[in-house]
Amino acid sequence: MSKKKVVVGVTGLNNIDSPGPGIPVIRALKDSEYFDVRIIGLSYETLEPGIYMHDLVDKTYQIPMPSAGTSSLLERIQYIHSIEKLDCIIPNFDAELHNFIKLSPTLKKDYQIATFLPELEQFESRHKSVLFEFGEKNDVKVPFAKMIFSPSEIYQLEDKFTYPLVVKGKYYDASIASTPEQAVSYVNKISAKWGYPIIIQEFVSGNEVNVTAIGDGKGKCIGAIPMRKLYITDKGKAWAGVSLEDNQLIEIANRVIANSKWRGGCELEFIKSNKGEYYLLEMNPRFPAWVYLSVGCGQNHPEALLKMALGIDVKAFESYESGKLFIRYAYDQIVSLSEFEKISTFGEL
């Protein structure tokens, strides 16, 4: 059977020490038996390593920062599409998803570019700021949390929280504060970068376990792989991890995906409390950077996503291998100045 040729735009090429999921997603797609993919990298910065990985990324274009808005993004995609004829775009950054979700009907209707993203409402419903409600609605435990809009509110929380507590940004960043003073300083630091609200969350101690999963948007969980981090960088990112056999966790993941009718990839971050209860800490609305482990375990999630995006029928995976490890490594690419010049001055490479 000859493979189906497709052109896929992928963001998140920042394969650095706190990596974006772009390169792992691309590797998964390149492994596909079904597709023959041409990868169009979509980058924000000129030093994203993926731009220069020519064996994985066939061509890269710079795209405007999410803060520039959907009209700028659409204009850029129109330009890229006029050259590359994109079949599908897989965005991988939390901060850009809002805009891509907003544009997805236009992309489909006017340009026949597929995406496979949650609805805006679903996307908002798992937001850190409302995760507690999300948990209640979808029958999963979530640590108690409250939004705040100024550092001074920390002092009014004394009756609701005990220290330590977790200070979280709207999109990224989380720090554990053991005193109100520390909390205030984290609030200031995180809000300077991501704005308000800031989420204050109950600290649950225990072991962190994560799940990478994918839903079909109709209430079916297509696949889910649980993983425990074995080695964590100073940025809290997994450097190595191992897939787990954990039926209870798979069941919870299935329930969340089913109840929320999640469409697309996601990462569920749980903490298994000392009593053995699972608390959902976060639901990231896209694949995690370790999604390639899913391929290693026998479930190619990015390929499944691409199939569903293109309207190809996908059956739910029934099994996976536990005890598979991923171990990340850093790799120094050698790049000529002229390549850097091209992406810097023309925004294309």
Binding site: E45, T46, S72, S344
Partner: peptide
């Protein structure tokens, strides 16, 4: 200066 982080003018013409 290039690559100071935030500047990326590609596609922001509408701005």
């Amino acid at each position: 200066k290039l690559n100071t982080g935030t500047m990326n003018k590609f596609g922001t013409k509408t701005e």
